[in-house]
Write a protein that binds this DNA or RNA. Structure first.
Lengths: 203, 203
DNA sequence: TTGCAACTGGGTCAATTGTCCCAGTCACGG
DNA sequence: CCGTGACTGGGACAATTGACCCAGTTGCAA
């Protein structure tokens, strides 16, 4: 194994862990499976991390920090120029998220498993809260831009609107992961966009 | 340990397993933890079940079969008599589900974990599909009754409407399990009811 | 009452898994 | 070029866990 700094090694192990969790599930992400995926020896693992739990905790932090908004603001702007309504923008955003989900279902499944893992112990619960707070933050930005571009105003604080949209996206995710029904997911996206767009008034 | 028939024993073990999974999570539901919860010896476990997996599979079947609709039809009728709109009925239904969630969050968390477990292997995936099909079935009944009582007609096949509502309920569940924000959950319930009620027309 | 099959308790086993250790080896600053 | 400390490979270990086994025991039918 080539030499690398402690930071690089931690990062490499974290990436390997994410791949294993995505592919085989959190329960199968043993220290041995992770080092095998990373092409290292067990000793390297415990040189970089105190314990498996420490790695999983770091993994959650990493994937959460890496979450990107599904809708880029300039894309929103382009659509708005063409006279799209707020509802149109939201639906396009939902469909874009769905596209992302279809491209890498295992990743979203892994995120869900990590959330449930975090929910299971009081000291890790904050990780789950941070994860969802991050989701809300990303959507707050997009929702504020969308309202701005379509000349509308949110009747509620934007973060409350975002919180609703996070719930809808999550529901879309789980149900689709179960039945893989694309048309049904599209209907969920449309209904969610519709409901949320009604939380704004024209300015 | 008192004597009991194989069927009773299987049932007792299944109940014990559900309690362990709810309280400590699926990962902690080892054969030993389950028999301890049931007050049996390990031998009894393997007398009643071939393997732990067989019990978990049965557990999924049992909890799914036991799912009851959150809204009783006669309750719907009473509300409709008082002039409630379809949207009102749906929102009341969502809030009632939420009440149920608040009363026993661990049970819903267990259901979610069982779904994810089923999703992780091809031969168990059908269990997850059956689980969600059951959710849809329960809602189909309620939605059909609600439309009937309010003199409206679903523009889409009822099961498609139900499928959307299942997604919304699931989203409400996960996000609330994470942040325990009652007000936010109520907003999700209202938005979901609103969106779904727009899928019907007056007759 | 008696025979027996259903059932149970307690122990055992192999496999898995998290963690650790130690003898080496390699990169790099002096 | 060399010493040293960072790093690695391979092995070891205890704990956990799913599965199993067997010698008993007990309820019940005849």
């Amino acid at each position: 194994m080539t030499r690398m700094s402690a930071a690089e090694r931690r990062a490499a192990l974290t990436e390997a862990a994410l791949r294993v969790v995505s592919r085989e599930g959190l329960a199968q992400a043993t220290t041995r499976a992770i080092v095998a995926e990373a092409g290292m020896s067990l000793a390297s693992f415990h040189y970089a991390f105190e314990s498996r739990d420490e790695l999983i905790d770091e993994l959650i932090g990493v994937v959460v920090a890496r979450e990107r908004k599904a809708i880029a603001v300039d894309e929103l702007a382009a659509a708005a120029e063409q006279g799209a309504s707020l509802g149109d923008l939201l639906e396009a955003g939902m469909l874009r998220y769905f596209e992302h989900l279809r491209e890498d279902p295992e990743h979203e499944q892994a995120m869900l498993e990590l959330t449930q893992y975090a929910l299971r112990s009081p000291e890790r619960h904050p990780l789950a809260i941070a994860q969802y707070a991050r989701y809300v933050d990303l959507l707050v930005e997009a929702l504020a831009a969308a309202a701005e571009l379509t000349g509308t105003t949110w009747r509620l604080p934007v973060d409350q609107v975002a919180r609703v949209l996070v719930a809808f996206s999550d529901g879309l995710t789980i149900t689709w992961l179960v039945d893989r029904d694309d048309a049904a997911a599209a209907r969920v996206a449309a209904a969610a966009a519709d409901a949320v767009s009604r939380m704004a008034d024209p300015r």
